[in-house]
């Protein structure tokens, strides 16, 4: 019974509907963009460009997709800053840990003779 008790969500007013319509257009554009990017990525890996260049482009495209979904589909730009902080902290720690681990491991430290599996 407490379910209905406690919601700051306003009843759908006209202005609310307008903003939802605006969001709708943003969503459609974004969906088209995301589909296009996925297509570009697929083609890109087969093109005879410089490896570093392709790698950089792939990374930035994926980063763009990542941020776009979070920002619009997940409403983060419409929402309170504290949500960005909650998620961003986790994301930052995970990324930092990932990069640190990447540097900490190197093939020079591996005793390949001990590995009999392959």
């Amino acid at each position: 019974m407490s379910e209905a008790e406690y919601h700051p969500l306003p009843v759908a007013t006209e202005s609310h509907k307008d903003s939802e319509t605006e969001k709708y257009h943003a969503f459609v554009n974004l969906a088209l963009g995301l589909a296009a990017i996925t297509g570009i990525e697929l083609v890109l890996v087969y093109l005879p460009f410089n490896t570093v260049f392709i790698f950089t482009v792939l990374l930035s495209l994926s980063l763009f997709k990542f941020i776009a979904v979070i920002a619009w589909f997940m409403h983060l730009i419409y929402d309170k800053l504290i949500l960005t902080l909650a998620f961003g902290t986790g994301m930052a720690i995970a990324t930092g840990t990932f990069i640190a681990l990447g540097f900490l491991f190197s093939r020079g430290n591996v005793d390949m003779d001990a590995i009999t599996g392959f």
Partner: peptide, 12 residues
Amino acid sequence: GSDCMFFGTLIS
């Protein structure tokens, strides 16, 4: 945010 760390570990 917690799940980021979860998948971060797996992908790492």
